[in-house]
Every structure is written in C-alpha cells, then in structure tokens.
Amino acid sequence: MESKPKGKLAGFFHFPQGDGLSTDEFIKGLWRENPVLVQVLGMCPTLAVTNSAINAMAMGLATLFVLVMSNILVSSLRNVIPKQVRIATYILIIATFVTVADYVIQAISLDVHKALGAFIPLIVVNCIILGRAEAFASKNGVWASFMDGLGMGVGFTFALLLLGFIREILGSGSLFGISLFADSFQDWVIMILPSGGFFALAGWLLLFNGLKLRKKQAQPEQTREEVLI
C-alpha cells in the first residue's frame, strides 16, 4: 500500500521509488492471493469455459484486458466518483470494456467467440473485477492499480490454464487441439462435461491445501498420505 495522495491529482502519476512495491503487487495476484486458487472468486467462467486449453486461454486474456483497463480507469477517476454511486459507476466502466473485448474477440476469431458464447458478456459479473476495483483501484494510484490488475489477471489466466490443461489432456487426449496420445487412449469424457469442472478444480484445491498443510505442520509423512486420499 502506498501513502494516500494529498491533493486531488497528487499521486495520479505517482511511480514508486523502488520497483519493489509494484513488483510485489504483481506477485501477490499471481500466487499468494491468487483470485481463483486462494480467494475462490470468479468461479462461473473458471468452471464453464475450461474444457479446452484454448478456450481457457481466450477467457483468461479477455478477463486480463478488462481487469487492467477498468483498474486503470477506476483508479484515475477515484477522486471524481461520488462515494454513493461508486459501485454503479464501476459496473458501467467494466461493462464498457467487456463490450470492447466482446467485439475484439469476434473480430479475431469467430470460432473462439462461438465456443465461449454468453460467457464473454458474463465477464461483467465476474466478482474478481468488481472486487479489485472496490478493494484496490479505488484507494491506490494508477501505476499500482495497473500492476495489481496485471497480477490478478495473469494469476486468473494461470489458474484457468491449469484447469484447461488437465481437462483437455484427460478429456480429449490433446493439448491446444494437438493430439497427444496414440489411438489406444481412452478419453475421460467426464472431464469435459460440467461435472469434470467441479472435480478438476476440487483436485487442484486439494493439492494446494495439501502443500499448505505440509508447510504449516512440518509433518510431511502424514500429510502426504492425506494428499493421496
């Protein structure tokens, strides 16, 4: 957290002295406060579009774009927006950028746009974006908010890719559409079905919980058994 700006526009283009602070904002979103794996936010797109790696990637990048842009705008307007209507204003800002992202994806790849369907407009109601606008961008400078949005966005994309990889490899036997196994591989159809999303995410959470427990308890043997369960 940087110090509160004194004047109306003081701190608008405030760059921290050392690069340590903004790097920390970036790393925080990537790992320690990862929006999906630690905070368990933004579940709808996380589970719905990760049935293949390419869809996960497109969704992650679109969210990254909206997150960074809305963080920048919210943070630069933070002294202008009246407190009472701030949430409504944030939602409008986010909806605007989502509309932009929607049209851009449609222009780049119609296939991906079709595969993601209604889930691109649904980025508007992704709790991560509104959460970052309210919890971070409305209180911090433009540069820090940019780094925060970037970190959270990359962390979100990372988590989506983790799920997309595992679900596509097991469910279709391929990665980014390239077949990985010989024909003898039996696809785990369940992984690309909706319930596969629940199971894959639960699996990753179990793994990370196990790692965390192991660090805390310093009883590696016992916890490793629990990981296997």
Binding site: V40, I190, L193, P194, S195, G196, G197, F198, F199, L201, A202, L205, L206, N209, G210, L213, T223, E226, V227, I229
Partner: peptide
C-alpha cells in the same frame, strides 16, 4: 472429513457429484 478436504474443496466435490446426477 480429512482436514485437507475441508471447506471449498469438499463443496466442489459434492457439487460435481450433484452435477453428475443431473446429467
């Protein structure tokens, strides 16, 4: 429940099974 599965992970597993039944 094993300590490791407490919380969200357990809820997700149950959700997955519920989703299977709805299929």
């Amino acid at each position: 429940v094993p300590v490791i599965a407490k919380g969200v992970a357990l809820t997700l597993l149950v959700g997955g099974i519920l989703s299977l039944t709805f299929m």
